[in-house]
């Protein structure tokens, strides 16, 4: 590999890590407050759809991202309603939210654009070129400062670690969790937006392809801390970039490597990372309660 190839691989790692980064941060806010977020996949998917749709209508990637975040937050609201006041099992309800997103995006596509397979292709002016990467880095930094040095950040952590103490301090735990889940939805929606209007130039059906779950794996690997989780996203992003780079490559004897083996690389790495992750579990104590 030459120097420029390595540089190129680094650049594409940063790009493909961005959707994971936002989603992992979204998962982090929610899980820190004590709410498991298996629904990240679905929140990303509606975010990707809404972002591509809004960017198509307005011609602006910023409006697209706004739409994606709002859609993610809206679906997160449905999730919060079923798990906070209605006390549904969080893993089960999260899975249902993922199915809802997978069904509703093609249905809306049929209503709005007469197509169940995706949204119209966007011109370069309606897409992002590098902004989501920098926004992502900034959000990681802000998140770190927020949980360490602000009162509301402390509330979120207490909601996940010791909700009784927070309640005793006169803060309504349910309200903190509601806000955390909505913020989580907006962040995951931004992750979806960077998929459809940054990495790609339209929404396509089921385009998240497990990234919400990979973000969750990154969060677990990063021990529910923003900076390590972000680094874990970079690791997954690297294998995704490598996978794209390896397609079309041949074995030493000239036979092409089957593309199927290359494409499963990021999924296999995710399993290996979760399997190799030993050590004391550091999940928030009241997670899922």
């Amino acid at each position: 590999m030459t120097g420029s190839e390595i540089l190129e691989l680094g650049g594409s790692t940063a790009r493909v890590s961005t959707p994971l980064l936002f989603a992992a941060l979204g998962g982090w806010v929610s899980e820190r407050s004590g709410v498991i977020n298996i629904a990240l996949e679905g929140l990303m998917l509606v975010g990707a759809f809404a972002a591509a749709s809004c960017a198509h209508v307005t011609g602006s990637p910023w409006m697209g991202a706004l739409g994606g975040m709002m859609a993610g937050a809206a679906l997160a609201g449905v999730y919060a309603f079923t798990v906070i006041p209605l006390r549904a099992n969080q893993v089960v309800a999260g899975t249902a939210i993922n199915m809802l997103a997978a069904g509703i995006t093609p249905l809306l596509g049929a209503y709005l654009f007469d197509s169940t397979s995706g949204t119209p292709s966007l011109p370069a002016s309606a897409r992002f070129h590098s902004a989501p990467i920098w926004i992502g880095v900034a959000v990681v930094g802000l998140g770190w400062v927020w949980t360490r040095y602000t009162r509301t950040g402390l509330w979120v952590r207490f909601a996940g670690e010791n909700p009784e103490a927070l309640d005793a301090a006169g803060v309504r735990v349910a309200r903190v969790r509601w806000v955390a889940v909505l913020v989580s939805g907006a962040l995951a929606g931004m992750g979806g937006s960077s998929l459809s209007i940054f990495l790609a130039s339209s929404f396509s059906r089921d385009m998240t392809a497990g990234r919400g779950f990979m973000a969750l794996a990154a969060l677990i690997f990063g021990k529910w801390k923003p900076v390590p989780a972000a680094l874990a996203c970079l690791l997954f992003g690297f294998f995704d970039a490598l996978q794209i780079r390896l397609q079309g490559l041949s074995f030493g004897n000239g036979l092409p490597i089957p593309v199927q083996f290359i494409q499963v690389l990021p999924y296999a790495v995710t399993i290996l990372v979760l399997a190799g992750f030993v050590g004391k579990s550091s999940a928030p104590k009241a997670l899922g309660m």
Partner: peptide, 13 residues
């Protein structure tokens, strides 16, 4: 798929 999701949400609420 939407109907399945909504039934799951309703059952588990």
């Amino acid at each position: 798929q939407i109907l399945q999701a909504l039934v799951i949400l309703s059952v588990s609420a």
